[in-house]
Amino acid sequence: MSEPWEDDVEGPVKKFMFINRKSPYGTVYALESLEVVLITAAFDQDVSLVFSDDGVFQIKKGQKTDGIGMKNFSPTYRALEGYDVEKLYVDKESLDERGLTQEDLLVDVEILSRAELADLMDEQDVVLSF
């Protein structure tokens, strides 16, 4: 028996990619994805996040949800670094279509083309779409 403070034996590490394509608040996808990302990271897995299509609004700066009576979960994306989730990618085309730039986003991300994202997706063991 190991003491409770001793780390568990390391298990297999898989490459997980989470693809976020939905605006926050209108549906529950964004929040659900974030929860699963945190759980996956707590299990020391290799996690990548992609924000594309309306998913880019999930990390838009300046979200104020008092008026709609829902919890503003956007600050949690800034906690990801502490969970060692540092691979955040944004689809350039999605940003351009919406008139947004890196300046509008509340976390540091790498902006990639669809071809580059497709290559990354190809390298994964598990791809989860939200």
């Binding site: 945190l38 990271a41 707590a42 020391d44 919890k71 503003n72 979960f73 600050p75 949690t76 800034r78 906690a79 502490g82 969970y83």
Partner: peptide
């Protein structure tokens, strides 16, 4: 207050 979540133990320990 800052991140709107309770941290996982590993994250708490590190922080």
């Amino acid at each position: 207050d800052e991140y709107q979540i309770a941290p996982a133990v590993r994250v708490l320990t590190k922080a």
